Simulated scan of single mutants.
Amino acid sequence: RIEYPGAYYHVMNRGNRREDIFLTNKDRQGFVDALADSCDTYSIKLITYVLMDNHFHLLVQTPQANLSEFMRHFLVTYTVRFNLRNGCTGHVFQGRFKSLLVDEDEYLLPLSRYIHLNPIRSKRFKDADIPTKTEYLKEYSWSTFAGYCYLRKRNKNIDYSWFLCTYFGEDTAKARRRCREYVYQAIDGEIENPFEAVVHQSIIGAQDFVDWVRQKLPRKAQREVPALNRLQHHISVERIIAEVAKAGNAKAADLRDRKTKLKDLRQMAIELSYRYSNYKQKEIGAIFGVDYSTVSQSRTRLKTKLNSSRKLKKQFHRIRAQIEKMAIPKI
């Protein structure tokens, strides 16, 4: 599997012999509880999930490049608890889980929508009208969708604010409505399938992202993309700030200053710290003198700027390439 710190994954697994993995709602709640326990143990950021009768989908980020360890722990934990609760023995899941590395910039948002639409992508809803489908999605208990739309339906183990701030600008009633409408828009007509962008059976991403991953592979691994070793080690935020400052002919102290005139460089330093350090947004914010939400907003603003300015995007990629060289362990 392709593993590196900060990577995003779509993860899926089915029941053994395609049998149900949930017999009752106690099993479903047990699944959610086991998932929360494993995410906490392995410092996993859980973004979305949906539970169906005989399979599940997850969208996660792995700050510590430990997807395999996390999933092994989670699947074993759920299997043991399921068997004890139901007086069963043997396997619950069908072999190893499947995972795809996800390009955050281009595919994380549409993939989250595809996952959240799973409950109505069945024969049962083939001829159902739109109001029936939207109501079912809104009331479906075993998905993160409702929590992104309504505060009262939130799960304390999900960081809803990060996703909403990143893709809808803020975590407010207006942003939650926009998130809800984004999903509902795909109900009326053919549902967009992000899995059509899968490359090498391992990656969902645009070509520049695929090229970025390929550049990190040793020659042998380029021929065997699924069998990739971990790519990076963590870099301190201080080193990242220094590198960004050097690239912009500035001082590191200027980038840490909240009142700096070098807004673009400061936002780049924040974004690259998020991608390549082992710091969480709250910890990054402390270094830059801001709170957690401001870090998220800064990253969102930078993403908008990069999409509208070719010159700025070129500068960012040049600095990121230098940071990546620092992130590759020497063998």
Rank of each mutant, 00 (worst) to 15 (best):
225 V>K: 05
275 R>D: 09
140 Y>R: 04
39 C>I: 06
77 T>V: 03
167 Y>M: 08
126 K>S: 10
276 Y>I: 06
243 E>C: 13
144 T>R: 01
254 D>N: 14
35 L>I: 07
290 V>W: 02
229 N>V: 11
276 Y>P: 04
162 W>H: 11
222 Q>D: 09
260 T>S: 14
178 R>W: 09
151 L>Q: 10
326 M>F: 09
166 T>R: 15
247 A>T: 05
99 S>R: 01
251 K>A: 15
45 K>M: 07
247 A>Y: 07
149 C>F: 04
203 I>N: 00
236 S>N: 11
192 E>C: 06
8 Y>C: 11
148 Y>R: 04
69 E>F: 04
238 E>S: 14
231 L>R: 03
194 P>M: 02
198 V>N: 01
237 V>I: 15
254 D>F: 09
153 K>L: 11
198 V>P: 00
55 H>K: 01
126 K>W: 08
85 R>D: 08
298 S>C: 12
153 K>F: 10
209 F>K: 00
9 Y>E: 03
177 R>E: 14
68 S>I: 10
92 V>Q: 00
39 C>G: 09
159 D>P: 11
152 R>C: 11
4 Y>F: 14
151 L>D: 13
271 E>C: 14
25 N>W: 05
74 F>P: 01
122 S>D: 06
112 S>P: 07
58 L>E: 03
104 E>D: 11
294 T>K: 09
305 K>A: 11
194 P>D: 07
260 T>A: 11
118 N>M: 05
52 M>D: 03
183 V>L: 08
160 Y>Q: 06
249 N>E: 15
314 K>L: 08
306 L>I: 08
84 L>D: 13
188 D>Y: 12
190 E>M: 12
311 K>C: 08
278 N>W: 07
13 N>T: 04
73 H>R: 09
272 L>C: 09
283 E>Q: 15
279 Y>V: 06
77 T>Q: 11
213 V>D: 01
47 I>D: 00
64 Q>P: 00
312 L>I: 12
239 R>P: 03
305 K>L: 11
320 R>Q: 12
297 Q>A: 13
208 D>K: 13
302 L>C: 08
64 Q>W: 06
103 D>P: 03
130 I>F: 10
